[in-house]
Write a protein that binds this DNA or RNA. Structure first.
Lengths: 125, 125
DNA sequence: CTGAATCCTTTTAGATACTG
DNA sequence: CAGTATCTAAAAGGATTCAG
């Protein structure tokens, strides 16, 4: 909090695109839940489906495919009957933790609509 | 990096929604550019329009309105002719800096598609 | 058990013209 | 100068059905 970003460096135009891309990678509706569960341990598809409240089979598959394509989860297929698929972390996933943590801290402080509205009002006065 | 989030605490279901909301707040296509410029100093509408490459008047207005509604920018109208409107930071904006910084760090390390793909491949092997 | 295919709704972004 | 009003396009999310 004592380290204003803007005072430290400028941002090149291309970096905005990269930063936006980073946001896109984790902005899927279920991706944070998925990643969080995987931070604890590898999970099977059915485990994720049962654990994540409200997600459909279709959406879970799609979010996992996107995460996999972006290198944020690993997908391991075991040649068994019945089939077993396990999802796990990558180095990129692990490196993402501090950013998620920082966002969660901020969300707890300022993420509440009422609180944010109050802050804005106070700033206007 | 030495502090795995998952090892420290669990996340309540409601917190996922809050975290997703935080992401939504900053996920607009032009919001990061806007916030970054405002971190340096207050800007007028026309200044933002000229400085941010590729944004249209319409989109800039909409993104600013959303940021304002979310308490991430202040909007000050000066009763002058011609009209002058200035946008600035709020406490919530300032508190957001560390999270943006963390995301940008991660993006520089893992945000490149090629790099991410390589990481994923290495993890699979 | 894991997931692909199809169709549909909602959200977000953008282009264009007009205004106090 | 700083917007608003329409309209259109693209992306994201979701329900349902079928399959190795």
């Amino acid at each position: 909090m004592d380290v204003p970003i803007a005072k430290n460096r400028d941002v090149k135009p291309e970096e905005y695109a990269e930063l936006r891309r980073a946001l896109t990678l984790i902005s899927g509706k279920w991706k944070l839940e998925i990643l969080w569960l995987l931070y604890h341990r590898p999970h099977r598809f059915g485990e994720l489906l049962r654990t994540i409240n409200g997600v459909t089979q279709h959406m879970l598959t799609r979010q996992l495919r996107e995460l996999e394509a972006d290198g944020l989860v690993t997908r391991t297929v075991f040649a068994e009957v019945p089939p077993r698929v396990e999802y796990g972390m990558t180095d990129a996933t692990i490196a993402l933790e501090p950013a998620i943590w920082a966002l969660m801290e901020w969300s707890r402080e300022f993420g509440t609509p009422a609180r944010i509205a109050a802050e804005a009002k106070a700033a206007r006065d």
